[in-house]
């Protein structure tokens, strides 16, 4: 392999995060909304511990695990996509991106099935405070998954048309950063809402 190439991607060298700085401002803004939501959940639970513990048992933890795995896997695929474009391998990059999007799609399917189950039982936002939080938090995140898929889709199309290269691939990193954020939020959401009691 190209040992003569001096690559510094592992060394502390950069002051700016990968991708467009604008997406990072956006990511920070989005993360703060979720942070407020998480804290609100935890402090509301404080006054309704029994209610929260009781209805947490009605959630489908298996689906939640599957969804965690799909998002982590999908995030990993995106890492591979970025690595591929850094090697100037368009085709591989597109394939990894498509794999990531399909994992996102799988998430949407599983989550929809969960919603269908809840709605089928007549549960809605006004059922109780726990379901209010559960539905709001997961649905807000759900919308982000969809938005992330749209962004990755746009990046994949541009990558397919040869819009990126080993030198210029800010777009891929931008989409990747957003997608990792979607994953990151779920990593906290999963234990908080489904497991911690």
């Amino acid at each position: 392999m190209q040992e003569q190439v001096i690559d510094t991607s592992d060394v502390l060298h950069d002051r700016h995060p990968p991708g467009d700085l604008a997406i990072w401002i956006f990511i920070l803004a989005e993360l703060s909304v979720f942070a407020v939501f998480f804290a609100a959940y935890a402090f509301t639970r404080m006054n309704n511990v029994e209610l929260f513990n009781e209805f947490q048992q009605h959630l489908d933890r298996q689906s939640a695990l599957l969804n965690t795995l799909t998002l982590i896997t999908s995030s990993y695929f995106v890492v591979r996509a970025v690595a591929a474009i850094k090697e100037n391998n368009h085709k591989l990059c597109v394939n990894w991106l498509l794999a990531a999007i399909s994992m996102g799609f799988l998430f949407v399917v599983i989550k929809s099935a969960e919603y269908a189950h809840h709605f089928g039982e007549g549960i809605n936002l006004s059922t109780n405070t726990f379901y209010m939080f559960y539905l709001s938090l997961t649905f807000f995140h759900f919308m982000h998954v969809i938005m992330g898929m749209v962004i990755l889709g746009a990046v994949a199309i541009k990558a397919k048309n040869g819009g990126y290269s080993d030198i210029e691939h800010t777009g891929v990193e931008t989409g990747a950063s957003y997608w990792h954020m979607v994953d990151l939020v779920w990593l906290i959401l999963f234990p908080l809402v489904y497991v911690m009691r």
């Binding site: 991607s9 592992d10 060394v11 502390l12 060298h13 950069d14 002051r15 700016h16 995060p17 990968p18 995030s75 990993y76 995106v78 890492v79 990747a176 950063s177 990792h180 954020m181 994953d183 990151l184 990593l187 906290i188 999963f190 234990p191 908080l192 497991v195 911690m196």
Partner: peptide, 23 residues
């Protein structure tokens, strides 16, 4: 469980998002 989640989050931030190699 929360600690596991926070570690996971930090791993995603540092490695997947690539923040770990920034100054």
């Amino acid at each position: 469980v929360l600690l596991l989640a926070l570690i996971k989050g930090q791993l995603v931030g540092a490695y997947f998002m690539g923040l770990g190699r920034l100054r």
